[in-house]
């Protein structure tokens, strides 16, 4: 339970880190932390295998995002969370979190009740169920990825066409 709270707080902090609009690679860092901590939250729910798969995929994807955003915005003076504008966003987001907390904290009980009855519907079959029942669907999902790849290649093909550029 302690770990759950720690993960949740870190998740929140990483979200604020992204939402406060720092330079891209600081934001990507926040995103990575958020992804990792989210997987940690999943392990606390008991879905260890799923969280591992997710973490590996996230890590791969996030590395690409990190590299890409670093290449996209190679700024000489990046603004981190210390700079005035970003810091004001951080404060604003924190205030929003506090307000939401004060508004919603009384209703938290409701979540517990629903969780007990619904979350366990398919938990016991887990990932094997996904591969078993959704085999064709995974094929389609693969096609989606291929189309996405082709689209990205097509959009960034040739001179002066892509959006990858030095700022």
């Amino acid at each position: 339970m302690v770990m759950m709270v720690v993960f949740s707080v870190m998740f929140l902090i990483s979200l604020i880190a992204v939402a406060s609009n720092p330079s891209p690679y600081f934001a990507a860092l926040g995103l990575m932390i958020g992804a990792g901590v989210g997987c940690g939250m999943l392990t606390q729910f008991g879905m260890t295998f799923l969280s591992m798969i997710l973490f590996l995929i996230y890590l791969g994807g996030m590395l690409v995002v990190f590299a890409y955003s670093a290449a996209l915005a190679a700024e000489p003076y990046p603004s981190a969370w210390g700079s005035l504008e970003v810091f004001s966003y951080v404060v604003g987001s924190l205030m929003l979190v506090v307000v939401m907390w004060m508004l919603l904290v009384n209703d938290f009980g409701a979540f517990d009740e629903i969780e007990g009855c619904v979350m366990s519907v398919r938990r016991y079959v887990g990932v094997s169920e996904m591969y078993n029942a959704g085999g064709y669907m995974l094929l389609v999902a693969g096609w989606v990825l291929l189309v996405a790849l082709l689209v990205v290649l097509e959009l960034t093909r040739g001179f002066g066409r892509g959006c990858l550029r030095a700022v």
């Binding site: 669907m137 389609v140 999902a141 989606v144 189309v147 996405a148 689209v151 959009l155």
Partner: peptide, 13 residues
């Protein structure tokens, strides 16, 4: 949902 995504992606080029 996947059909919709394929649709969206394919029209962009």
């Amino acid at each position: 949902w996947m059909g919709l995504e394929i649709n969206t992606l394919a029209i962009i080029p």
